[in-house]
Design a protein around this nucleic acid. Sequence first.
DNA 1: GAGCTGCGGTACTAGACGGTACAGTACTCA
DNA 2: TGAGTACTGTACCGTCTAGTACCGCAGCTC
Lengths: 209, 209
Amino acid sequence: MTDLTPRAAAKRQQIMDAALAVFLENGYVGASMDQVAALAAVSKQTVYKQFKDKEHLFRSIIEDVGDRVDDPFVEISEQVAETDDVERAIHELAGRFVTTIMDPRVQQIRRLVIGEAVRFPALGRAYWERGFGRAIATVAGCFARLDERGLLKVEDPMTAANHFAGLLLWIPSNRVMFHGRTDAVSAEELGTFAASGARAFLTAYGTPS
Amino acid sequence: MTDLTPRAAAKRQQIMDAALAVFLENGYVGASMDQVAALAAVSKQTVYKQFKDKEHLFRSIIEDVGDRVDDPFVEISEQVAETDDVERAIHELAGRFVTTIMDPRVQQIRRLVIGEAVRFPALGRAYWERGFGRAIATVAGCFARLDERGLLKVEDPMTAANHFAGLLLWIPSNRVMFHGRTDAVSAEELGTFAASGARAFLTAYGTPS
DNA sequence: GAGCTGCGGTACTAGACGGTACAGTACTCA
DNA sequence: TGAGTACTGTACCGTCTAGTACCGCAGCTC
């Protein structure tokens, strides 16, 4: 996809934005290429010039979304790793974690990828590893450092990071997934989930102080 | 759906079994009524005699699956609630919990319902509450009893039960959801997830002994 | 300004879909 | 045995779909 004129590149972006919206709303099978072209304000011919067929379009979109996610937890993880107030820092990390992952857009894409994971298994796996996997690895690194510094007691950082995620996200994530609406969980509820999850995590992995 | 001759009832069951299989494989939009009729070894006419249209067929199937789930944790929860060896009992409960929820059939239906939750929001919510919700409530009751008996320290049993579930299921559930294959997690891995989750839970919610 | 390229619009093909109609066959029950 | 019902098989309708062909216009390059 190198070597595109600026105009073509702009069209391509229009198409991808529109296609993502259409796929999110209707799923892979339910989405039609006519809808995509119409929403992109582009002719079908142009769509097929840039993307071989529907399947390639879908793959490009999901891969693109996965690539765009530059791990949003690097900065805060570094701060948390060097904190002197673990409790406060973990609560902050929890809050950031929950609001980031529970962002409506992220959840919509999550549902789409899960729903099509039988049709596109490799795509699902790649999305998961490049997206959430990196975030978990970052947090795991943070926990490892806190263990070194004697502020947490973490034998296996990856497991601890996954437990952290499970404590925080299991409830709201399932609620959104099964309710089909991104507003199924309010911001306040997210706050209480983050707080109770962080408390449980600190009890499980904190050092007796 | 009362008042069916035995023959009609048998046909109906054939259709529902076949339809579930077809929906699981192809999703709601991707499944065709011809496929369903063929797999059920039944004419399309018979399908439409029993079910008004595709949507009613889908709803009937998901509701039926939800109804069939009689909470599989009642018995073990009662045993755990009255145990004298909490650690051992929680580990057993964890093992049962993970193997039951991570059953391939359960996970397939979970994916289907999530994938169609935008199209059928009420169905998704009902499935979640009647299925997993009841299981969580049962486990929460068990934890409340263990708190009474001084063997756990549980302020909010429902939150504790959800934390239990999150610790155990977050990792394997996501793996299966995104891999699109039910064999993405081996039985041994399930065992280690159950064990490490149970340990974390006991540290977080156990009483200092 | 000629020529080329990219794009829009539309019409098209070939097939699949949900749902229905109908004629003929198997079963049930009196 | 006979009447009535349930079922099968196939053909069909209208609609939608992915993907292609073609024409005509706009904008860029030399």
